[in-house]
Nucleic acid binder design. Structure first.
Length: 106
DNA sequence: ATAATGACGTCGG
DNA sequence: TCCGACGCCATTA
């Protein structure tokens, strides 16, 4: 299987796989995903999301301060409201204390 | 092989 | 709380 001729790096596949399992209403930071996988770093996860994120629930991966992916704030906020993701006062950032997913089954 | 790139994270002011 | 400087590291050029 290829991606229109472009190969998907092993790390990218692993990242997409994890993101695809984040439950609705829950989120993970770029750093969380990297730490969960035990390889790569926040920037690598961000690079993967930028290129192949469209195929997964990309809005469930955000920055460490709870702010949505740069350039996709509006769409992400709509998703959070739709799936009841806990937001902080002001409603522009996710409340990680409640919405952060540890990776273990519900 | 070397340098540049980037949907990040942390820290200091 | 906001912002800039610096560190990080796989992928690309």
């Amino acid at each position: 299987m290829t991606d229109g001729g472009l190969e998907i790096p092993d790390l990218a596949s692993a990242v997409l796989d994890v993101v695809d399992r984040i439950p609705p209403g829950k989120v993970m930071t770029y750093g969380d995903v990297a730490e969960y996988l035990g390889r790569g770093g926040p920037r690598q996860v961000g690079t993967v999301m930028a290129r192949w994120g469209a195929a997964v629930p990309w809005w469930r991966v955000l920055k460490a301060d709870g702010s949505p992916p740069p350039g996709h704030e509006e769409r992400a906020l709509r998703k959070y409201r739709a799936e009841r993701t806990p937001l902080r006062p002001g409603g522009t950032r996710v409340d990680l204390r409640q919405a952060r997913w540890d990776g273990r089954p519900e």
